[in-house]
Amino acid sequence: MAIEVIKPGLATSVQDAGRPGYYHLGIPLSGALDQYALHAANLLVGNEEGAAVLEATLLGPELLFRAPAIVAVTGAEATPKVNGETRPRNESFAVRAGDRLTFDYMKAGARSYVAVAGGIDVPPILGSRSTYALGALGGFVGRKLAAGDVLPVGSAAASARPGRAFAADLVPTYPKSLELRVLPGLYFHRLTEESAKTFFEDTWTVAPEADRIGYRYRKGRTLKFRERKQPFGAGSDPSNIVDAGYPYGSIQVPGGLEPIILHRDAVSGGGYAMIGTVVSADMDRIAQMQPNNLARFVAVDMDGALKARADYRSRFARMVASLR
């Protein structure tokens, strides 16, 4: 069984649950930016948790199936079509050999996930099939998909069938404006008193450069760092520190201009002061933000972060329980 890529879309890559354990050598987690949508897609087609899927960003691909398959599309609000006929999102459907899967405009959300029963069967590297494009590692020959690529698919589980779906009210929606919860910390104390306030007061717009490495935001007021005699080994700008490891979700503001939230293809470290970290429960929501969408940052403490995490888990569990 194989799938041929007729048109790759803007940036479509093979992703799974990620590749932990190598961040200390500069190899980031990678994996589906929206893990909720990844797991949902795999459940719908009867795959094991963490099977590899296709992640399509902002513009869906055109795919030709060379054999019959069970498929599910989750994530962004982009209607899938088989040979031009509409198919539901968040519900498994069957395709025949020779069928073409295409996508309508991404009306909301930024990433669609395409799971195929059996999973995309590229070779696992360091325990994962995820693509890390900066390091030309994993996925389909280490890069995003191109026209003409032929993707191998594994054997479908016996339970794979069309028509599996979740309760409709448990499927996430993707607003164009949202709040992201941030645990201030790391080098937050380096901001001036004024900037420590304006960061949370302003509405920030997703920049067109936002990608798997980091989400860049603009149009808030410039953030100022406290003046000091820079420590030995730190750069000359007050936003610089001695190069350090960057947490996933951490927010850096090079030169005080545009906050960047590092995502799953993060650069693992560098010399820009991080002013806080987006809570783990909101990382999937960042993944679904389109350029020009709006965000406000809301400060939470650790209890708030853990509560958000528990809520995320229970929402996911309810969705899984509603699978029919």
Binding site: L186, A234, V242, P247, G249, M274, V279, A305
Partner: peptide, 19 residues
Amino acid sequence: YSFGGDEHVFAEIDEEMSL
């Protein structure tokens, strides 16, 4: 020490570089 969200601890041993 500082928490980096709910999944990281960041530990700054010193502000300046030294062996």
